[in-house]
Each structure stands twice: as structure tokens, then as C-alpha cells.
């Protein structure tokens, strides 16, 4: 299931967070889905999202599904992107920082799965605590 073409098809989403904006009703859509969930037209334009957002909810996984054992325990979050949509992704680079609902996070590219002896190594988006810009 963790095949090369399957992951390759998702490269724009996995590496650049490319979603859609509906030119008919203006709603921002991620993941992209062609038929607008709000107005049901197909007038979407591709747009790369900023990758900034905040934690809507989170959970730490102690019993991972097959293929994710190396990361356990890891934290999965629902992130509210600043453009509006929610996205499911792992949090990373947390160090000792405690996750809180509402904390600011930003997208980074990380290894998502190692693929064992023969499978592909999968990269994609995770979110880390937002690095505050230095004061001017």
C-alpha cells in the first residue's frame, strides 16, 4: 500500500501544502477535492497554503499502527490552518515543550515512514511549534 506512485501523486500536498481556493464561493480547501464542499462547483484554483496554524486538538499515540512503530510515542494533531481548513498531521520538534490547544505551529518537511527494508521512505508535512520572529 505504501507504493511509490501513490506517494508521488501526493507530492504537491505533502511537500508544499497545495490546496485549493474556490473561485465561485471563495472557500479555501485542503486536502484538495475538486468538487467544492460548500457550493458544489468545480471552479477551484490551486494555491499553496502558508503552513501556519494552531493546534485544534492532539493525542499522543502509544500503540501505533504497523509502519509507525519507530516514532512511538508520537503526537498527532488536528491543526487549524490560518486559511481555515483543519489538517491531520504529526507534531514534531517539541523537545520538552508541552502541547496545548491553541498553540501556534508551522509546517516542516519530515520523514513520515521508513518503509522497512524495501519500501520507499516517505516524506511529508509535520508541524512544529512556531518559531517567533526575532524582535526588530
Amino acid at each position: 500500500m505504501n507504493s511509490v506512485p501513490r506517494n508521488w501523486r501526493l507530492r504537491q500536498q505533502r511537500y508544499r501544502l497545495v490546496g485549493e481556493i474556490c473561485e465561485s464561493c471563495g472557500v479555501r480547501i485542503f486536502p484538495p477535492r475538486d468538487v467544492c464542499p460548500e457550493c458544489e462547483t468545480m471552479e477551484q484554483k490551486e494555491v499553496a497554503f502558508s503552513g501556519r496554524g494552531e493546534v485544534y486538538s492532539y493525542s499522543t499515540v502509544y500503540h501505533p499502527p504497523r509502519g509507525f512503530e519507530e516514532f512511538a510515542p508520537y503526537t498527532v494533531a488536528l491543526v487549524r490552518l490560518e486559511e481555515g481548513p483543519l489538517v491531520t498531521a504529526q507534531l514534531t520538534d517539541l523537545d520538552s515543550e508541552q502541547v496545548k490547544i491553541g498553540m501556534s505551529v508551522e509546517m516542516v518537511t519530515r520523514r513520515m515512514q521508513s518503509g522497512g527494508e524495501e519500501g520507499p521512505i516517505v516524506y511529508g508535512y509535520k508541524f512544529r511549534p512556531a518559531i517567533q520572529p526575532a524582535a526588530a
Partner: peptide, 17 residues
């Protein structure tokens, strides 16, 4: 699922919120 979310985790996300 590709992000390591088990079925329990998806329910946990809803529960915490």
C-alpha cells in the same frame, strides 16, 4: 492514516476537543 493516526487516535482528537 498516512500520518500515523490510528482509529483510536482520531476518536481521541475529537474527545480532547
Amino acid at each position: 492514516a498516512a500520518h500515523g493516526a490510528s482509529f483510536v487516535t482520531l476518536n481521541a482528537l475529537v474527545m480532547r476537543r
